[in-house]
Amino acid sequence: DETGKFLVLALYDYQEKSPREVTAKKGDILTLLNSTNKDWWKVEVNGRQGFVPAAYVKFL
């Protein structure tokens, strides 16, 4: 159920650099879980949760 969740689009490829991050490919649609940090947003992609740089994604 996606009610109340926001989707964001990956603008660039991002390769995770730590276990707390997730890899995303340009064009991926990610479920935004938390955007309270202006630099790192928590997302879910391909069943995995983790952080990506906020500058790499935008709201749909």
Rank of each mutant, 00 (worst) to 15 (best):
D1K: 12
D1Q: 13
D1E: 13
D1A: 13
D1S: 14
D1L: 14
D1R: 12
D1F: 14
D1V: 14
D1M: 13
E2P: 13
E2L: 14
E2R: 14
E2A: 14
E2N: 14
E2Q: 14
T3Q: 13
T3A: 12
T3F: 13
T3V: 12
T3E: 12
G4S: 12
G4D: 09
G4L: 12
G4V: 13
G4E: 11
G4W: 12
G4K: 14
K5I: 12
K5A: 10
K5Q: 11
K5Y: 13
K5P: 13
K5E: 09
F6Y: 12
F6R: 15
F6P: 10
F6S: 10
F6E: 07
F6L: 13
F6K: 11
F6Q: 12
F6G: 09
F6A: 11
L7P: 00
L7S: 06
L7K: 11
L7N: 04
L7Y: 15
L7V: 08
V8R: 01
V8E: 00
V8Q: 01
L9M: 14
L9C: 14
L9N: 00
L9K: 06
L9V: 15
A10G: 02
A10I: 14
A10W: 08
A10R: 04
A10E: 01
L11E: 02
L11I: 12
L11C: 12
Y12D: 06
Y12C: 15
Y12L: 09
Y12H: 09
Y12K: 11
Y12P: 00
Y12N: 06
Y12W: 12
D13Y: 10
D13Q: 04
D13A: 06
D13G: 06
Y14D: 02
Y14E: 01
Y14T: 01
Y14W: 10
Y14Q: 01
Q15D: 14
Q15G: 06
Q15S: 11
Q15A: 12
E16Y: 05
E16T: 07
E16W: 07
E16R: 12
E16A: 15
E16L: 06
E16K: 14
E16I: 06
E16N: 05
E16G: 15
E16Q: 13
K17Y: 04
K17R: 13
S18V: 02
S18I: 04
S18N: 11
S18Q: 05
S18A: 08
S18Y: 06
S18H: 11
S18C: 12
P19Q: 09
P19E: 11
P19L: 09
P19Y: 10
P19I: 10
P19M: 09
P19A: 10
P19C: 12
P19K: 09
P19D: 12
R20Q: 12
R20L: 14
R20A: 11
R20M: 13
E21A: 05
E21H: 05
E21Y: 08
E21C: 12
E21R: 03
E21S: 06
E21G: 13
E21F: 08
E21T: 08
V22G: 03
V22I: 14
V22P: 03
V22R: 02
V22H: 02
T23E: 02
T23Q: 03
T23N: 04
T23M: 04
T23K: 02
T23H: 04
T23G: 07
A24N: 02
A24I: 15
A24V: 15
A24L: 15
A24Y: 12
K25Y: 10
K25L: 09
K25D: 02
K25S: 08
K25T: 07
K25C: 12
K26Y: 06
K26C: 09
K26S: 07
K26N: 04
G27V: 03
G27S: 03
G27R: 03
G27P: 03
G27W: 06
G27E: 03
G27H: 04
G27T: 03
G27K: 04
G27F: 05
G27N: 04
G27Q: 02
D28N: 06
D28F: 08
D28I: 08
D28L: 08
D28E: 12
D28W: 11
D28R: 04
I29T: 05
I29A: 02
I29K: 04
I29Q: 03
I29V: 11
I29G: 01
I29R: 03
I29C: 08
I29F: 05
L30H: 01
L30N: 00
L30R: 01
L30K: 00
L30V: 03
L30F: 06
L30Q: 02
L30P: 00
T31M: 12
T31H: 09
T31G: 04
T31A: 07
T31F: 11
T31D: 02
T31N: 06
T31E: 07
T31I: 15
L32W: 04
L32C: 07
L32S: 01
L32I: 09
L32F: 05
L32E: 00
L33N: 00
L33A: 02
L33Q: 01
L33H: 02
L33M: 05
N34D: 15
N34A: 08
N34R: 06
N34T: 06
N34P: 03
N34G: 06
S35G: 10
S35I: 11
S35Y: 10
S35D: 10
S35C: 15
S35L: 07
T36E: 13
T36M: 10
T36H: 11
T36K: 11
T36Y: 10
T36D: 14
T36C: 15
N37T: 05
N37D: 14
N37C: 10
K38H: 10
K38T: 10
K38N: 10
K38A: 11
K38P: 14
K38E: 10
K38I: 08
K38S: 11
K38W: 07
D39H: 15
D39F: 15
D39S: 10
D39A: 10
D39G: 09
D39N: 12
D39Y: 15
D39E: 11
W40H: 01
W40Y: 05
W40S: 00
W40C: 06
W40M: 04
W41A: 02
W41F: 09
W41D: 00
W41C: 05
K42G: 03
K42V: 13
K42R: 10
K42S: 05
K42P: 01
K42H: 11
V43Q: 00
V43G: 02
V43C: 09
V43R: 00
V43H: 01
V43N: 00
V43T: 01
V43I: 05
E44N: 03
E44L: 08
E44V: 06
E44M: 09
E44G: 03
E44Y: 08
V45I: 15
V45P: 01
V45C: 08
V45L: 14
N46V: 04
N46M: 08
N46E: 07
N46T: 03
G47Y: 04
G47A: 03
G47T: 05
G47D: 04
G47W: 05
R48I: 08
R48V: 08
R48K: 10
R48W: 07
R48F: 06
R48D: 02
R48A: 05
R48E: 04
Q49E: 11
Q49K: 09
Q49N: 05
Q49M: 09
Q49V: 15
Q49A: 10
G50E: 01
G50Y: 06
G50T: 02
G50K: 02
G50W: 07
G50A: 03
G50Q: 02
G50S: 01
F51I: 04
F51T: 02
F51M: 06
F51S: 01
F51C: 10
F51V: 04
F51Y: 14
V52R: 02
V52Y: 11
V52A: 02
P53M: 09
P53C: 13
P53E: 04
P53T: 07
P53N: 04
P53A: 07
P53F: 15
P53H: 06
P53G: 06
A54H: 02
A54T: 05
A54M: 05
A54R: 11
A54C: 09
A55S: 14
A55F: 09
A55H: 11
A55N: 11
A55D: 08
A55Y: 08
A55P: 05
A55E: 09
A55W: 10
Y56H: 05
Y56I: 15
Y56F: 12
Y56A: 13
V57Q: 01
V57F: 12
V57T: 01
K58R: 13
K58L: 13
K58I: 14
K58S: 11
K58N: 05
K58F: 10
K58G: 11
K58E: 11
F59C: 15
F59K: 10
F59D: 05
F59A: 10
F59Q: 08
F59N: 05
F59T: 08
F59M: 14
L60S: 04
L60V: 11
L60M: 12
L60I: 13
L60Y: 11
L60H: 06
